[in-house]
C-alpha cells in the first residue's frame, strides 16, 4: 500500500514536471514565431535558432533523460553531436571561405 502511494506521488510529480516543460516549450515556439516579425539586422535569425536549440536542449535533457544515461550511451550521444558538428563546420568553412582573396 505504502509502495503504491509512493508510486502515485512520483507519477504526479513527473506529470507536473512534464506539463511545466511543455508550457515552456510552447512559449518558446511563440517567442521564435514572434521574432520572425521583427527586424534586428540579422540578429533575429540568431535569436530564432538560439530559441530552437534551447528547445532541443530541454527535450534532450528532460524528456530523453540524458542525465540517467550509461557512460557508453553518453559516448554515442556525444559522438552523434560531434560528427554533426564536423559535417556542418567543415562544410560551411569551405563554402564560406571560397570567395576570400589571399
Amino acid at each position: 500500500m505504502n509502495r503504491k502511494l509512493k508510486g502515485t506521488k512520483a507519477l504526479q510529480s513527473s506529470v507536473r514536471k512534464f506539463c511545466i516543460l511543455f508550457s515552456v516549450l510552447t512559449g518558446l515556439v511563440l517567442v521564435s514565431a514572434g521574432l520572425s516579425f521583427v527586424r534586428l539586422g540579422g540578429f533575429e535569425v540568431l535569436g530564432i535558432m538560439l530559441v530552437a536549440f534551447v528547445s532541443v536542449g530541454i527535450i534532450v535533457f528532460y524528456f530523453m533523460e540524458l542525465g540517467s544515461l550509461t557512460q557508453v550511451s553518453w559516448l554515442w550521444a556525444g559522438a552523434g553531436l560531434l560528427w554533426f558538428g564536423i559535417l556542418f563546420v567543415l562544410a560551411m568553412t569551405d563554402y564560406l571561405t571560397r570567395s576570400w582573396v589571399w
Partner: peptide
C-alpha cells in the same frame, strides 16, 4: 537504450546533410 542512441546518432548525420544543403 544504447542501440537506440546509436541509431539516433546516425540519424543526426542523415538529417544533418539535409540541414546543411538548406543552409548553403
Amino acid at each position: 537504450n544504447l542501440g537506440m542512441w546509436i541509431f539516433i546518432s546516425t540519424e543526426c548525420l542523415f538529417f544533418g546533410g539535409l540541414f546543411l544543403a538548406f543552409t548553403v
